[in-house]
């Protein structure tokens, strides 16, 4: 599979193996929330038609009402898009060399952290809650050597499968590193 995402600090022969975003259910819930917020004024309109009729006929209230409705829907649309951008730019990448955690925190803060695969010691997956269990999304914890902070893949789809893939890649990388060390030892002898 080909990924069109540029790696932050690509190494030689580095290839993306898996690219993970949050489960689609997470962005769906956010979009539904903003859609519901956009429908609220319409609901209010049907409930208080007399009030709105008075506003429409009032020469000074009508312009303020038009401005307010315009601002309200523009910002609902903006918040929906911002939610999508936040969802889309939070990415966890596993390459054949390292794992990369990219988190977009607001519009002007972007955190990128990396860890070499051979430094990974433990991978744990967790399903917690009703929707998480039914839809099969959850958290994957990647613990690196020492007391360093662990990587957390939040609300990702099929966390057990993701954890399994990472464990497999880490084992391959560790075996490769051992072979490299042995070959270095042979060369020095």
């Amino acid at each position: 599979m080909r990924f069109n995402l540029p790696l932050p600090h690509p190494e030689k022969n580095e290839k993306i193996i898996i690219l993970i975003r949050r489960h689609w259910f997470i962005i769906l819930v956010k979009i539904l929330f903003w859609a519901l917020a956009a429908l609220m004024p319409l609901l209010f309109f049907f409930l208080a038609q007399d009030l709105f009729a008075a506003i429409f006929t009032n020469e000074t209230m009508y312009p303020i009402f038009v401005l307010f409705v315009s601002i309200y829907y523009l910002y609902m649309w903006l918040f929906t898009f911002t939610s999508f951008v936040d969802y889309y730019l939070d990415v966890w990448i596993v390459t054949n060399k390292k794992i990369i955690n990219i988190e977009q925190k607001g519009l002007f803060r972007r955190e990128v952290s990396e860890q070499k695969l051979f430094r990974i010691q433990d991978v744990t997956s967790e399903l917690k809650g009703f929707f998480s269990t039914v839809i099969n999304y959850g958290t994957v914890y990647v613990q690196t050597a020492g007391t360093e902070q662990r990587f957390v893949f939040k609300q990702v789809a099929r966390p057990q499968r993701v954890a399994g893939i990472i464990v497999k890649i880490v084992e391959q990388e560790k075996n490769y590193q051992k072979l490299l060390e042995k070959s270095d030892q042979i060369k020095t002898k």
Partner: peptide, 14 residues
């Protein structure tokens, strides 16, 4: 904010 969002999406989203 529209410009910032689109810019971030195109620059970092691939």
């Amino acid at each position: 904010y529209t410009f910032s969002n689109v810019y971030h999406l195109i620059r970092f989203g691939g």
